[in-house]
Design a protein around this nucleic acid. Structure first.
Length: 135
DNA sequence: ATTCTTACA
DNA sequence: TGTAAGTA
């Protein structure tokens, strides 16, 4: 899929990303400091963001709005898992015949729950406490 | 006019 | 996080 290069093309400066994400420059730079995003730089040291960067920032924003702190976001966003490869390995893992979840699957599940679902009464497992669910 | 880094509220 | 200062 050569569409990835397009999504990773450094295109827009921070000003545009601010409007696209409704985040302040302060926040965007802060998330970068914590390794949540790694925008490219121009020869003049100016940041250039890609579509992937913007999408990632939107995910970060969603998590922040749900009360997740930087530490928690790192655990949910940093693991750049390869589920496709994971699926293949799963069929060969005779040891875990039972419906146990692979780490990446569990991670994917939690990420989805954290990014979307949110029923009233369901207390969120956020503010770093999320770390207790990862090994 | 925009963005960048640093630093303090 | 906001914002002021001094640059590039």
């Amino acid at each position: 899929m050569s569409d990835d290069i397009r999504r990773n093309m450094a295109l827009f400066p921070i000003g545009i990303v601010m409007r696209l994400t409704d985040l302040t420059a302060r926040q965007i730079r802060y998330y970068e400091q914590h390794g949540l995003i790694v925008p490219a730089r121009t020869s003049g040291n100016q940041r250039l963001f890609s579509f992937n960067d913007v999408e990632r920032l939107l995910e970060i924003k969603a998590l922040i709005e749900k009360g997740v702190n930087i530490a928690g976001i790192k655990q949910v966003l940093l693991p750049i898992n390869k589920d496709s490869e994971d699926a293949t390995v799963l069929n060969e893992q005779s040891e875990m015949k039972r419906r146990e979840l692979t780490d990446s699957q569990l991670h994917k599940l939690l990420k989805r729950q954290l990014l979307h679902e949110r029923r009233p009464g369901q207390v969120s497992l956020i503010q770093g406490e999320l770390s207790r669910f990862f090994h």
